[in-house]
C-alpha cells in the first residue's frame, strides 16, 4: 500500500526566512504522527503547504499516490485532507450545526439528509450535541477547539491535521480531548498532530517528528525521539513532561 501522504523535498522561503527546508517524510494509512518543535520552526507552515493554502518553492506533495502540489486547498479538502486551526476560526454568525453542515456539504460531498446524518454523528463523537443550535461565536475555548475538530471531521477526511488543538486547555479538558482523538484514530483516519503538550501527544501518536528551522531534525519512536540529545537541546529551557 502506498503511503497516504508523501512529502518530497518540500521547501519554502520568505526572503531570508526559511519555513520549510527539504522536508521529506511519509505518513502511512491509519498512522498518527506527532510534530514538535520550537515556536517559529515552520510547523504551521508545513500544514499550510500540505493543505494548499501555501505553495512551495520546490518539492512535491503526494496524497494517496496522486500528485496534489498544484491543487487548491478546496480540491485537496475534497480528496480528504482537512485541518483544524490553532486559533479556532468558526463561522461565528452560524450555529454549530450549520458550521458542520457547510463542511459536510462542501468538503464531504454529502447532501440533504446524508449531510445532516454526518453532522449529527460528528456532533455526538465530539461531545457537541448539546450545543448544536448555539451560535459558534458564543462557544467557550474548549467548545471552539472541539468545533474545529468536528468541522474537519465533517469533511470526511482521510488525513486530519491538528494544529495545537490541546493548547490553552486545562488538564482535565485536555484529557477529554485526547480521548476524543483516540476514538477518531480508531476509525482509521490518519493524523498529523502539532502539539506543545507532549504528554497528550505521546498518548496518541505512533511516531514523532521534530522540526527546527523548517528542517526535519529527528523522527522515530515517540519516547526514544524525546530522549534524543538533539531534541533535548532544541527544547532546552522548555518544560518537557514526557
Amino acid at each position: 500500500m502506498p503511503p497516504l501522504l508523501e512529502l518530497t523535498g518540500l521547501s519554502k522561503s520568505f526572503g531570508p526566512i526559511t519555513v520549510a527546508d527539504e522536508l521529506t517524510y511519509a505518513v502511512a494509512q491509519g498512522e498518527a504522527v506527532g510534530v514538535i518543535g520550537p515556536n517559529g520552526a515552520g510547523k504551521t507552515s508545513m500544514f499550510n503547504l500540505i493543505t494548499g493554502t501555501m505553495q512551495p518553492d520546490r518539492g512535491e506533495v503526494r496524497f494517496d499516490g496522486e500528485m496534489v502540489t498544484r491543487l487548491s486547498a478546496q480540491q485537496r479538502c475534497r480528496r480528504g485532507i482537512s485541518r483544524s486551526f490553532q486559533v479556532p476560526q468558526p463561522f461565528g454568525a452560524m450555529s454549530v450545526l450549520e458550521n458542520l453542515l457547510v463542511a459536510a456539504t462542501q468538503g464531504g460531498g454529502l447532501h440533504g439528509a446524508q449531510a445532516q446524518e454526518q453532522a449529527l454523528l460528528v456532533l455526538d463523537q465530539t461531545g457537541l450535541l448539546p450545543k448544536a443550535n448555539v451560535l459558534a461565536g458564543s462557544l467557550t475555548l474548549l467548545e471552539r477547539k472541539r468545533l474545529e475538530l468536528a468541522r474537519s471531521l465533517c469533511t470526511r477526511p482521510r488525513l486530519l491535521l491538528l494544529d495545537e488543538i490541546a493548547g490553552g486547555l486545562t488538564d482535565h479538558e485536555c484529557a477529554q480531548l485526547v480521548e476524543t482523538i483516540q476514538q477518531i484514530r480508531k476509525t482509521g483516519i490518519s493524523i498529523i498532530w502539532i502539539e506543545h503538550i507532549v504528554h497528550a501527544l505521546l498518548s496518541v501518536v505512533d511516531r514523532l517528528i521534530v522540526i527546527d528551522f523548517g528542517r526535519l531534525v529527528a523522527q522515530g519512536d515517540p519516547r526514544e525521539t524525546m530522549d534524543n540529545a538533539k531534541v533535548r537541546e532544541i527544547y532546552l529551557g522548555m518544560a518537557v513532561d514526557a
Binding site: 493554502t53 486547498a73 478546496q74 479538502c77 454568525a93 452560524m94 457547510v102 460531498g109
Partner: peptide, 18 residues
C-alpha cells in the same frame, strides 16, 4: 450556508472544501 460561510471567512471556507 455556503454564502454565509464564504462571507465570514473565505480561506477557512475553502479549506472546508468550498
Amino acid at each position: 450556508r455556503a454564502f454565509r460561510a464564504v462571507s465570514d471567512n473565505q480561506d477557512v471556507a475553502q479549506l472546508m472544501g468550498l
